[in-house]
Nucleic acid binder design. Structure first.
Length: 584
RNA sequence: GGCCCCAUCGUCUAGUCCGGUCUAGGACGCUAGGUUCUCAUCCUAGAAACUGGGGUUCGAAUCCCCAUGGGGUCACCA
């Protein structure tokens, strides 16, 4: 491998589900390395499992990558709204990018291998091998399929039986030599001779196995650097063996540490099912609470840890139980209201660290894609597995939200709602930019994700006559006697200020002041309320809390100026009026 | 079990390659204060780690060996 050669990295997902967060990190690192070296990043779809692959899944994975901002230079084309050209394409003429469309290529290579005796057709029934495998695992031995030379049919016989349509696989005649692989993150890894057995290259259905497809395609597509998860480490000698037999280059390998959940277990959909199952048990449910799942399926799922609900069913169930499922796929995180740039930042940190300090001496850990593209490097990748700390992700996301301008936040919140919460999106859109900005200012420091931006904003969208009053808040802030602010000598009963003996009295007096305020902006409102408190010898809190109860039904809300401004003058006065009338 | 990889606060990590500047720094979380009209944000402070044992060396978180622990992998899945 010469250093002036064009670097080509690839991400090669199998389209059997959603893009996993770990896969996203692999893709991100591949992308970053290509950018860093001025090379190319390509995507190949490994759809050789006919039963599990789907075009919908492939499409979803591409969309998730695009959403994250991980764009590929070569690969399947994905049109992007508002952009002239799609992502992807085939500038170096290495297509097709779907392995299912490359069968002729594999077969040609295979034919050559058989002719040279480094691959052979094997007609042994799968069950026979399976039995042998079971037997040796029973004896705690590692099963290696390695027939003696004499057991391998002559080529002509192989061809004859293949032509006759007999079911068979094609296997590698594995070279029996030790294999040494230089890994850019782990260093030199050696495997003893005999580690690689006669693995299958082409399955009985005529599709290549993963090992074979990867090796052939990486060669043909000019891939120079293979960055993948450490779960592939033991595949490396297999791939190297195939490459050796084929006379291919061996790309540079870099195996990155794995990502686990906070329990140290694999992040998987199974984890989501388990979370839902626990909640169902706690709630004491024995029958399906939602129509999307019939009772038989529900009880079966509940009883069997290994069973999984369909994604849609699981989510409906979680909604019904007001349960937040642990996110595992990019789509989950998107739905939960995490920002793509924050996700990229965070997952990059899981296994990679720029090793730089900020001006104040803290570690530099917040960075953008442009920084990654400039600073990413293989030797800085860690060797040990890490756990995915959702709390820290949430913190990063909250920081990013807080750092946005009000207008930017309003726009991104709206965009999120349009996709995941259309009802709120309509209300937000109807609000107008000025009020939306006030709302953004009110909500920004109170949410970690776009999804939970709704909580502190809920009162805004509640109709004036539907505010539900929290009895405790009413008692505390409207009915309890008011004590004058300021220093009061011990044992002395302070006089009620200007005849305002309860929060309700304060609210009534304040309403008259609010009626006169103009324009109805956060600043004017805030100043008006502050002046009112001063005039009556009250603390801000004594005035603020009664308004809060009138406005939201509770003692908790964003800052008063923003809250009243967003709700609007008419609605604010209506809410205060309704609150005063109630059991006055 | 065989093979392979890994090992610094609860978690993510800096420091390890080129031993001394490390009474081991930061971030998230946690605890305690403070600012503020509630909540949140924000600010300040604190508790919290070099897995163990042997070497090598004047000196080891850093180098070597062993043990222990964790992980991966052993398919006609990828």
């Amino acid at each position: 491998m010469t250093s002036d050669q064009l670097v080509v990295t690839r991400f090669a997902p199998s389209p059997t589900g959603h893009l996993h967060i770990g896969g996203a990190r692999t893709a991100l690192f591949c992308w970053a390395y290509a950018k860093k070296t001025g090379g190319r990043f390509l995507i190949r779809i490994e759809d050789t499992d006919q039963a599990r692959s789907s075009e919908a899944s492939a499409r979803g994975i591409l969309e998730d990558l695009a959403w994250l901002g991980i764009e590929w230079d070569e690969g399947p084309e994905l049109p992007v709204a508002g952009r002239a050209s799609p992502i992807g394409g085939d500038p170096r003429h290495v297509a097709p990018f779907y392995q299912s469309q490359r069968l002729a290529i594999y077969n040609e290579v295979l034919d050559g291998m058989m002719g040279r005796g480094v691959a052979y057709a094997d007609f042994t029934p799968a069950e026979t091998i399976e039995r042998a495998r079971k037997a040796s695992s029973g004896k705690n031995e590692t099963f290696k399929y390695r027939p003696a030379d004499s057991e391998i049919l002559p080529l002509a016989e192989q061809k004859r039986r293949m032509a006759a349509g007999e079911s068979h696989v094609i296997r590698l005649r594995a070279p029996q030599e030790g294999i040494r692989v230089v890994d850019e993150v782990l260093g030199e890894v050696a495997f003893a001779a005999g580690e690689v057995d006669d693995l299958v290259l082409r399955k009985a259905d005529g599709y290549p196995t993963y090992h074979f497809g990867v090796v052939v395609d990486d060669e043909m597509m000019g891939v120079t650097h293979v960055l993948r998860g450490q779960e592939h480490l033991m595949n490396t000698p297999r791939h190297a063996a195939i490459q050796r037999v084929l006379g291919y280059r061996t790309p540079v390998y870099a195996h990155m540490p794995l990502i686990f959940n906070d329990q140290g277990a694999k992040m998987s959909k199974r984890e989501r099912d388990a979370t839902a199952r626990d909640a169902v048990r706690k709630a004491g449910l024995t029958a399906s609470p939602i129509t999307a799942i019939d009772d038989a399926a529900f009880t079966g799922w509940l009883a069997d840890k290994k069973r999984q609900l369909e994604t849609g069913q699981l989510e409906s169930l979680a909604d019904h139980l007001h349960l937040t499922l642990p996110e595992v796929s990019v789509e989950d995180f998107r739905k939960a209201g995490y920002l793509p740039e924050v996700i990229c930042n965070f997952i990059a940190l899981l296994g990679w660290n720029p090793g730089m300090k900020n001006a104040d001496g803290t570690d530099l850990e917040k960075f953008d894609m442009e920084f990654l593209a400039r600073r990413f490097d293989l030797p800085a990748i860690g060797k040990s597995n890490s756990r995915f700390d959702r709390k820290k992700l949430a913190s990063f996301n909250g920081d990013a939200i807080n750092a946005m301008t009000d207008a930017e936040f309003a726009a991104r919140w709206l965009a999120w709602c349009e996709r995941f919460d259309p009802a709120t999106a309509r209300q937000l859109a109807a609000m107008g930019t000025e009020r939306a900005a006030w709302l953004a200012r009110a909500v920004k420091p109170r949410c970690k994700t776009l999804r939970d931006a709704m909580k502190p904003a809920q009162f805004v969208f509640t109709p004036d006559d539907a505010i539900a009053y929290d009895p405790a808040a009413v008692k505390k802030h409207l009915e309890a006697p008011v004590v004058a602010s300021g220093v009061v000598s011990p044992g002395q009963t302070p006089p009620a200020p200007l005849g305002l003996s309860t929060g309700r009295d304060i609210l009534r007096a304040l309403k008259k002041v609010l009626e006169t305020l103009h324009p109805w902006t956060p600043e004017v409102i805030h100043a008006g309320i502050e002046q009112f408190s001063k005039d009556h010898g009250l603390g801000m809190g004594q005035v603020a809390q009664p308004i809060r109860v009138a406005l939201t039904g509770t003692g908790v809300s964003p800052g008063l100026g923003e809250a009243l401004a967003v709700v609007g003058k008419t609605s604010t006065l209506a809410r205060i009026g309704r609150c005063l009338e109630r059991r006055a």
